[in-house]
Design a protein around this nucleic acid. Sequence first.
DNA 1: CTTGCATTTAGATATTTATCTAAATATCAT
DNA 2: ATGATATTTAGATAAATATCTAAATGCAAG
Lengths: 96, 96
Amino acid sequence: MIRQSIFKALADPTRREILRVLRERSMPAGEIAEHFTISKASLSHHFNLLKQADLVRTERRGQHIVYSLNTSVMEDAAGMLMDLLNPSSKDDSDES
Amino acid sequence: MIRQSIFKALADPTRREILRVLRERSMPAGEIAEHFTISKASLSHHFNLLKQADLVRTERRGQHIVYSLNTSVMEDAAGMLMDLLNPSSKDDSDES
DNA sequence: CTTGCATTTAGATATTTATCTAAATATCAT
DNA sequence: ATGATATTTAGATAAATATCTAAATGCAAG
């Protein structure tokens, strides 16, 4: 359920803030963590959900793991919302 | 927190399905209920969240309460997503 | 190959959420 | 007023979620 995971991911304020941070530039988990007061373990949990939704991608760089925004999926999400509005669009409720 | 309530409302598959049903036409709660197997009480709970997010509006018509999609808020939501993408947009994280 | 740093995983807990049944409220028709 | 229909509210419960601390893993540098 790709759709569901995206909407779920976007439902949490911390995760939306992570996306906002990442839209400035890609950065490692530790640096993202500097923007928050919650534990790194909790953030890691949020990273997981964002990755599951494919809203962010990761790349290991030595001892760091760099997170980047997956812009195209964000665009898809906005499109899904618009589809929810448009009666002519197919009802692709929950496939894949 | 208008933003939060919108994202929250959209996170649930049943609520998104309600929106899809309503985009065809406005209809009373009972008729919406025919599209679902869950209890009317549970649906009422979902209606509440959708109303809180201002994604739907209600109007009493005799003994029926007619639900309608609030199209403009749906559009706003899509816009918010796009904003989440655009580094130049102001960071209106959670005001109002 | 051990020490240090970055990140994730495990396991526990508290809060939130979706759902139910039963009861309450509101409107209409008689 | 009374009874029938439509919807919501109350109260309970089970499942999902966000968070924490502590431990484990992956990598780099001596």
